[in-house]
Design a protein around this nucleic acid. Structure first.
Length: 221
DNA sequence: TTGTGTTTTACGACCTCC
DNA sequence: GGAGGTCGTAAAACACAA
């Protein structure tokens, strides 16, 4: 069937068909499924309202051609105004209501897929943030350890110089390394990085990432 | 062949816009 | 008020592993 004939120039431009053709389906399994069904049923009859033995209109899957043309039309414009609905229904031998329902369901599928992709993107970004936070925490620990060593060295030099009253700060230097066990805002308890169970930082790691202290506790569970 | 999970079609309820 | 939208859901159609 000629695409120009089917949709009319006001609905679909020819460059779209040229670019997409009929091969650009969302997934191969879907195509395979339709092929198998077509083989079983002896191909589509072009009638979406086939009756069962009792004469009741049963749920009928659209033929490959019908689905394909609706898909092309959907990609062109996701909303369905009355004129286009009636036109498509007439050209595809469907009830206008069927066309409307198909578009409703197609929009729902599209939205669902979009949300899925957006979720994956946000999760990836979140994982990267968690990893970055881990590195910052590790760096903080290193710096505090360095500070503690420096303060110990100062203390030692003062002692060596006979400056016994120098510890006016109450000997608080030991508190400098208490971050591991007691820092209120710390993410760490025993030097490991506590992650959410769903953390999947592996996909954002780089070869030079220092993971010395960044092992989630659940890893050892 | 059958049980089960997934996809597709269809519908009703409710909302928004003209 | 009617047309068409989303959302939630039922059920048929289908794929596939056991």
């Amino acid at each position: 069937m000629d695409n120009q004939q089917l949709f009319g120039s006001s609905y679909v431009d020819t460059s779209f068909f040229a670019a997409n053709g009929t091969a650009q389906r969302e997934s191969q399994p879907k195509a395979r499924r339709r092929r198998r069904r077509a083989a079983r049923c002896g191909g589509g009859d072009g009638n979406g309202g086939e009756m069962d033995e009792g004469g009741d209109p049963k749920k009928r899957r659209l033929t490959d051609e019908q689905a394909e043309m609706l898909e092309l039309s959907f990609r062109e414009e996701r909303k369905l105004e009355t004129g286009r609905k009636v036109y498509l229904a007439a050209e595809l031998g469907l009830d206008p209501k069927q066309v409307a329902v198909w578009f409703q369901n197609r929009r729902a599928r599209h939205k669902s897929k979009t949300l899925e992709q957006e979720f994956a993107r946000l999760k990836h970004a979140h994982d990267a943030d968690i990893l970055h936070k881990c590195h910052l925490e590790n760096e903080l620990l290193r710096l505090k350890e360095k500070l503690r060593a420096t303060e110990e060295e100062v203390q030692r030099l003062r002692s060596a110089a006979g400056c016994h009253g120098a510890s006016a700060d109450g000997g608080d230097s030991a508190g400098a390394v208490s971050v591991c066990g007691g820092s209120p805002g710390s993410f760490f308890s025993t030097g490991t990085c506590q992650q959410h169970p769903g953390f999947s930082g592996a996909d954002v790691l780089r070869p030079d990432d220092d993971l010395m202290m960044c092992v989630p506790e659940w890893f050892f569970a």
